[in-house]
Simulated scan of single mutants.
Amino acid sequence: MKSLLLCAALAVFLPASAMAQDRYAERPPLVVSPDLSAPWVMQLQRAPHGAPIREQTVRRQVAPGARMAVAPAPIIRQRSVVIAPDPVHTAAMAPAAPRSAAPQMDPIFLPQEVAYTGREKPGTIVIDTNAKFLYLVQEGGTARRYGVGVGKEGFSWRGSETITRKAEWPGWTPPAQMIARERAKGKILPAHMPGGPENPLGARALYLGSTLYRIHGTNAPWTIGQAVSSGCIRMRNEDVTDLYERVKVGTRVVVS
């Protein structure tokens, strides 16, 4: 009977003693499940706006003797994604499209001194509508030649007139026939347009006799050398200004 009681006492004492000693035993490392750590790792790996997300591996080292360690995070594989740029921002940052070059006048129509063998006396203006040149006859068998624009088909004319008036930066009053003609083509002309850089008569005007024709400047210098006008003789503003200073009212003008 005593033996049975002793065995029972030992059975009770020994587990309690073992549990007491186990309290001070070394604990195994604590492992955090990848299911819990993965979202935090993904947040740390988030790429900047517009950059592709690259494959990364995140590993945390455990110092010797540490009581707690985190299991290595799984490799996060993400498909490369590039965010398309904002079209409005892209358009604003894009370089401006190059402007198309303005039409250029043929250099042959620039002013120059040339030989003159015609019969008109010095001081006369001679206009060759076929060649698109205006000559101011000078002494010594020479002439100052300028390029001009002349009347288009159906509006050209020939004859002799004199300069009856000169004007600087003239205003423009389109004739009634021109207003009606342009209206039929869908273009509305003003009843009057004051002088200025945008005025079709340009910087200077030399009025020919009692006609509606003039030798004048232009706001479209690239048309010099062409048959484009309604009968007037047009010049570059620089050239008509030069001619204006060289001639006076009463000068004879021959158009051929």
Rank of each mutant, 00 (worst) to 15 (best):
M42A: 15
G118R: 02
A143W: 00
R181D: 12
F133N: 10
L30M: 11
L4C: 09
A94G: 02
P72N: 09
E161C: 03
M42P: 00
L201R: 01
K187C: 02
S156Y: 08
A102P: 02
K248P: 00
R234G: 06
Q104K: 13
V254G: 05
L189Y: 08
G202Q: 02
A167F: 07
V32M: 10
D106H: 07
P39R: 03
V114Y: 00
P34V: 09
V62G: 08
G186Q: 06
A205G: 07
G154L: 04
A84C: 06
A102K: 10
D35C: 07
P52A: 08
A176D: 14
A69M: 04
R165P: 06
A73G: 15
A180P: 01
A8C: 14
M68P: 01
S17P: 00
L134V: 07
T57D: 11
T124K: 00
H192V: 11
P72F: 05
L110E: 11
Q61V: 13
V88N: 04
P87Y: 11
T211S: 14
I233P: 01
E120V: 02
A101K: 13
R158D: 13
N199C: 10
I224M: 04
I179C: 01
K2F: 09
G217R: 00
A47T: 12
P103G: 11
W169R: 06
E55I: 12
A94W: 11
A131H: 05
R77Y: 12
A101R: 14
G141S: 08
G250K: 00
M1K: 09
A8W: 09
S229G: 08
G50C: 06
A63K: 15
L243N: 01
A51Q: 14
V82S: 07
V253S: 02
A18V: 13
L208S: 02
P85K: 03
P98A: 15
S37Q: 12
R60N: 11
H192N: 12
R59P: 08
E168H: 09
D239M: 01
G159V: 03
Y244R: 00
P52S: 05
P107Q: 06
P48H: 06
G149P: 00
F13W: 15
I127M: 03
R252T: 09
A9T: 14
R60E: 13
K152E: 15
Y146G: 04
R234W: 04
